[in-house]
Simulated assay, not measured.
Amino acid sequence: MADCSISIGRETRRFLLHLARRSIAAVAHAQPLPECHPEQAPPGCRIPCSCFVTILSDGELRGCTGSTHGTHPLYREVMTNAVKAAFHDPRFAPVVPEELDNLALEISVLTAPKRLGAMSPADLRNSIEAGTHGVTLECGSRRAVYLPQVWSHFEGSRDPHVAFLTSLSRKAGDRTGRLWTDANTRFETFEATTFGETELAGDGG
């Protein structure tokens, strides 16, 4: 998988956001997904790359789905994850047509993940950069991912790293929030280029 986030320019961002919205609208109206051939996509969208699509409604999370190991061209990953976020996120009811005008979309294009070796909790905290790194936690059948922007929820914590990793552990299904300290737990870190419709609208896009 390529690190394609560095090549996501303004026009490419506009293309991907428009494609994500068209995909969601098509499914909401029980229509076929929009056709998009490789030659129609900007060059940076044609290489395999991972991404997440986040849907907001009135500033609140309405859906978020993605993968840290994308295997398809970026534009295809965006289409797939947009539909999953809108209609298959188990935390929310499927999006209905009446909601479409009130939704705001964000796309996070990820760098290739870096697997961290076994280390102590203290060394783990030192290996993860708050505000920069997204983190995947995995232990047996339990798995959870936080994007880099999730760090903002823990800025006021006494120890943001502990708060972040505790919350990530609970997201993976560990009620104690201590899964991140388990010697059998493995981690990957990644970075992300995140952009949204609000951003483009705000600067004349």
Results as ranks from 00 to 15, higher is better:
Ile6Pro: 00
Ile6Gln: 09
Ser7Gln: 08
Ile8Tyr: 00
Ile8Thr: 00
Arg10Val: 07
Glu11Trp: 01
Glu11Leu: 07
Thr12Val: 12
Arg13Ile: 01
Arg14Val: 01
Phe15Ser: 02
Leu16Ile: 00
Leu17Trp: 02
His18Trp: 02
Ala20Pro: 06
Arg21Lys: 13
Ser23Ala: 14
Ser23Phe: 00
Ile24Arg: 02
Ala26Tyr: 07
Ala28Leu: 00
His29Thr: 05
Gln31Ser: 07
Leu33Ile: 03
Glu39Arg: 11
Gly44Ile: 00
Ile47Asn: 01
Ser50Met: 04
Val53Thr: 05
Thr54Trp: 05
Thr54Arg: 06
Leu56Ala: 00
Gly59Ala: 10
Glu60Arg: 10
Glu60Phe: 02
Leu61Asn: 04
Thr65Gln: 13
Ser67Val: 08
Thr68Ile: 15
Gly70Gln: 09
Thr71Arg: 15
Tyr75Trp: 13
Tyr75Cys: 07
Arg76Leu: 13
Arg76Tyr: 08
Glu77Tyr: 04
Val78Leu: 04
Met79Gly: 02
Thr80Glu: 14
Phe87Ser: 12
His88Glu: 14
Pro90Gly: 08
Arg91Asp: 11
Pro94Val: 10
Pro97Ala: 08
Asp101Cys: 09
Asn102Arg: 15
Leu103Gly: 10
Ala104Gln: 15
Ala104Ser: 15
Leu105Gly: 10
Glu106Cys: 02
Leu110Ser: 09
Pro113Trp: 10
Pro121Asn: 07
Pro121Glu: 06
Ala122Pro: 00
Ala122His: 00
Ala122Arg: 00
Leu124Asp: 01
Arg125His: 03
Ser127Gly: 02
Gly131Cys: 13
His133Gln: 07
Val135Arg: 11
Val135Tyr: 09
Val135Lys: 11
Leu137His: 04
Glu138Tyr: 01
Glu138Ala: 15
Cys139Arg: 15
Gly140Glu: 10
Ser141Ile: 05
Ser141Asp: 12
Arg143Asp: 02
Val145Leu: 13
Tyr146Phe: 15
Tyr146Gln: 07
Leu147Phe: 05
Val150Cys: 06
His153Tyr: 07
Phe154Ile: 10
Glu155Gln: 15
Arg158Gly: 06
Arg158Glu: 14
Pro160Gln: 09
His161Met: 12
Val162Arg: 13
Val162Pro: 03
Leu168Ser: 00
Ser169Gly: 13
Ser169Met: 12
Ser169Lys: 12
Arg170Gln: 15
Ala172Ser: 12
Ala172Gln: 03
Ala172Asp: 05
Asp174Phe: 11
Thr176Arg: 14
Gly177Asp: 11
Leu179Met: 15
Thr181Trp: 00
Ala183Gly: 03
Thr185Asn: 06
Thr185Leu: 06
Arg186Leu: 10
Phe187Val: 10
Phe187Tyr: 12
Glu188Ile: 01
Glu188Asp: 06
Thr189Tyr: 05
Glu191Ser: 13
Ala192Thr: 10
Glu197Ala: 06
Thr198Met: 11
Glu199Ala: 14
Leu200Ile: 06
Asp203His: 11
Gly204Phe: 04
Gly205Asp: 06
